[in-house]
Design a protein around this nucleic acid. Sequence first.
DNA 1: CGTTAGGTTGACGACGATCAATGACGGTGG
DNA 2: CCACCGTCATTGATCGTCGTCAACCTAACG
Lengths: 264, 264
Amino acid sequence: MISTSSHVSSRKPLSHPIALNAPLAGYGPVLDFRDFEAQLPEARAGQRRGLKPGESLFLQEDRIECVYVLLDGWAFRYQDLKDGRRQIVDFALPGDVVGLNEAMNAPYGIEALTPCSFACYSRKSFFQLVGRQPAMGLALVQMLARAEARAIEHVTSLGRRTARERVAHLLLELVTRLKRLDLVADTKSLDLPLMLSHVADALGLANETVCRCLSSLRRDGVLVLRERRLKVLDLRRLADEANLSETEGSEPVAAVMPARRYAA
Amino acid sequence: MISTSSHVSSRKPLSHPIALNAPLAGYGPVLDFRDFEAQLPEARAGQRRGLKPGESLFLQEDRIECVYVLLDGWAFRYQDLKDGRRQIVDFALPGDVVGLNEAMNAPYGIEALTPCSFACYSRKSFFQLVGRQPAMGLALVQMLARAEARAIEHVTSLGRRTARERVAHLLLELVTRLKRLDLVADTKSLDLPLMLSHVADALGLANETVCRCLSSLRRDGVLVLRERRLKVLDLRRLADEANLSETEGSEPVAAVMPARRYAA
DNA sequence: CGTTAGGTTGACGACGATCAATGACGGTGG
DNA sequence: CCACCGTCATTGATCGTCGTCAACCTAACG
């Protein structure tokens, strides 16, 4: 494991529960569906579903009836090939919604990376509830937009980036998302509940290759991996290593990462 | 070009314009947004935007205001890296909607592959119109679900399939989509307005590699590429070559492809 | 005709996969 | 407490797929 601890701190609640006039701009305060859940009257709260690391929320091919909001923990979506190889498609972090726009049978499975807690809604009640909270409709669109942007970046990574760039890019993405969610205490140090095999399966690489890339990034002073805890020493460098797309370079990354160089 | 002709036949209208009680099942009759457009009273029709092959609807990084429905032609979404490499993220076929859930700035550009015609709507009026046509809300969700499934397959392809498998998989995907849209006259022969470089950029390969894969698939009797027109000789074989995901094998593919073996 | 864009084929090299051995760590049971 | 085991990380050696470079071909077009 890159990280020993498989727990993810439950975050602090927002100061004011829901910003009703959230700006449409993509990079305003983050609304996520944990707020949605917090807002609901008791009776409306979704049924809970807890998962231990390694357990599945549903399997590829399962008929899925529900929309799930990940309240706490990390999970991932994956797809298996007939020949047994696995591809991790996306990581789900607290606030992410899964099972939203599938047809009948999910083309992927969901597996917990840490202990997870999901809220489950029938499609119907989910949309009813969203309809009742106008800000949540907006949040939903924003979330889908971010998920799609990530999917696109993922395709680009696998298609056009070297192994080292892919690793750097994934780490950068995760750091960025965690920051958005206020899940990183310290800017530089964070727990990723990932094994080499998860990173490898996400990036279309072999475990050994990921290991070598991490080692070389460490040798080059970009990060430290000690006692199974990842410290990013130099975010700017990491971004350089990631060979970002033209869009990525500009706003979102910059907005989330105050340019912070060597000087501690 | 794999295909000489860059025109795409405009399809026949549905016999009955909109099936209001479309089954929720993913594989019922295909509703697409060309119907939506056809249904609108004159005054509501979106403004038209025509594109010639190679022209862009918008560029990566552009602020996009509109939702676009592709009425006719082929286009593709792409992303450029800082070092100049390009990745094609997705192909858009008639009936596809683009620009739907972006935040402010598109993380990708759109370029026409054939002469294209788009209908443009402001976000607001698009959602109003969709709200007025209940079946279209359903169609929208189905379309998004299919697009997401494709994105996932794309990630899996790039991550875990060999060059040959990727090429077979892409061809299969395109054949399947064209059939769904009634855009293939003959089962076995079809025009793909693609150059090697498009396939290569979509699959994260070099032009030469794509060329070699196509040649070898031809040698092996899976397809024919004569006078720049692609004929698929053996869909079943093609599906075998594609190393499908566990889900893909079953329904959607099978439903669209009547099992058709060697015997002509 | 010459020019150009794109397709095809071969030779070669590099990046990353695979195979294998070893190390580090945690858990379990004697 | 220590021996044993299983899981995962690490490192080295070798191999294969695919990218790169280069030459040539073909078709379209002025």
